[in-house]
Amino acid sequence: MPSRVTMTVNGKTVSREVEERTLLVTFLRDHLGLTGTHVGCDTSQCGACVVHIDGRSVKACTALAVQVEGCSVTTIEGLAAADGTLHPMQAAFREHHGLQCGFCTPGMVMSAVDLVRETPDLTEQEVRNALDGNICRCTGYHNIVKAVLAGAEAMKAEPSRIAAE
């Protein structure tokens, strides 16, 4: 049975009729056309679909769209500033070559942003442990870890922007 679901996505209110079994990631990709959020597995292991729900990182394949009713969702498309300026974490991924094919990248960046918000001071090992839920096949993680540590420093330097999401 279709249900109406209403939520805020990247600052805009959206409302759609969806089948109740529709996953949040399907809702974002197929119903809203926000294809930056990717699907890399079917067992909630890879993390390519991580988005923020009310500021917390969530694998969008683990939630039904109807469960997110009334929430505020941020996807990778909503992370940069309105004028296109990259979020410090996005900029750090670029600066440190933390991405290659780009497929895991949206989930990786969204996870990293939430990680740094929760724990601003991180060691390399803590970053590695915390990214356990995001698989990358290209980078060998070396530059992702560097990027997250650099992004964490940059986020400290720009607290006002970070709080705005």
Binding site: G36, I76, E77, R94, L99, F103
Partner: peptide, 15 residues
């Protein structure tokens, strides 16, 4: 720094 990164980092890669 890679020129292609802008689209990948902002969710605008097209797969």
């Amino acid at each position: 720094r890679r020129l292609e990164d802008q689209r990948f980092l902002t969710g605008r890669g097209r797969y």
